[in-house]
């Protein structure tokens, strides 16, 4: 099982600027099973081949707000996504082609999952209850670590996945920073 670390600042490195917060949710980090028709999701670098979906688990979440201190708050959550078929291409900030850089152990190689950071597209979020949710003051930072067996899991099913989202509740309009550690099985 390979472990990967993904930060939304990585997305900035690859050209997607961090979304400023508003009163609507923004997907900061997305990890999902790709589909064979998502060019950037194929592990072979874009060639559509027999696609091996893998179950994945988020086991560590770190969030914070790199902005001038003020008294407002942000709502964070993790939602299931159903980025069906080619609509997955609508996620901005796809990083799958660079996923070999995210492995905690470089020997593990690329992640097969579809990964994106700083996406502004929210159309594929499943409208069900969140899996993890916390609203914190802008000045605070938060980290959650799962014990083995208690991770946030997504199935090895095409288009299924998880999205870490943030909502600039109150008057916060700055950027956010987040890091997610996940495992592919």
């Amino acid at each position: 099982m390979a472990n990967y670390t993904l930060s939304n600042s990585t997305g900035i490195t690859y050209g997607t600027s961090c979304q400023a917060m508003t009163t609507t949710y923004k997907s900061i980090i997305t990890v999902a099973v790709g589909t064979s028709n998502v060019a950037s999701g194929a592990p072979s670098g874009g060639v559509v081949t027999v696609y091996p979906p893998r179950r994945g688990k988020i086991y560590d979440i770190l969030v914070g707000q790199p902005a001038t201190p003020a008294d407002t708050y942000l709502q964070w959550d993790v939602m299931r996504i159903s980025a069906a078929g080619s609509s997955q291409n609508t996620f901005a900030g796809a990083l799958t082609s660079a996923s070999s850089l995210f492995a905690c152990d470089p020997a593990d190689g690329s992640a097969i999952a579809f990964i994106s950071a700083n996406s502004s597209i929210e159309t594929n979020v499943t409208a069900i209850a969140d899996l993890w949710s916390v609203a914190i003051n802008q000045r605070a930072s938060y980290r959650w670590v799962a014990a083995p067996g208690s991770e946030l899991t997504y199935p090895a099913v095409s288009s299924a996945g998880l999205a870490l989202r943030a909502l600039g509740a109150g008057s916060y309009t700055g950027q956010v920073s987040a890091t997610v550690m996940f495992q592919e099985q």
Binding site: V134, I136, N137, R139, A140, S141, W144, V145, G149, S150
Partner: peptide
Amino acid sequence: GGYAVITSPEQARVN
């Protein structure tokens, strides 16, 4: 099943 750590420079409310 896990733990959370919140670092806050001052007293605050968390939901």
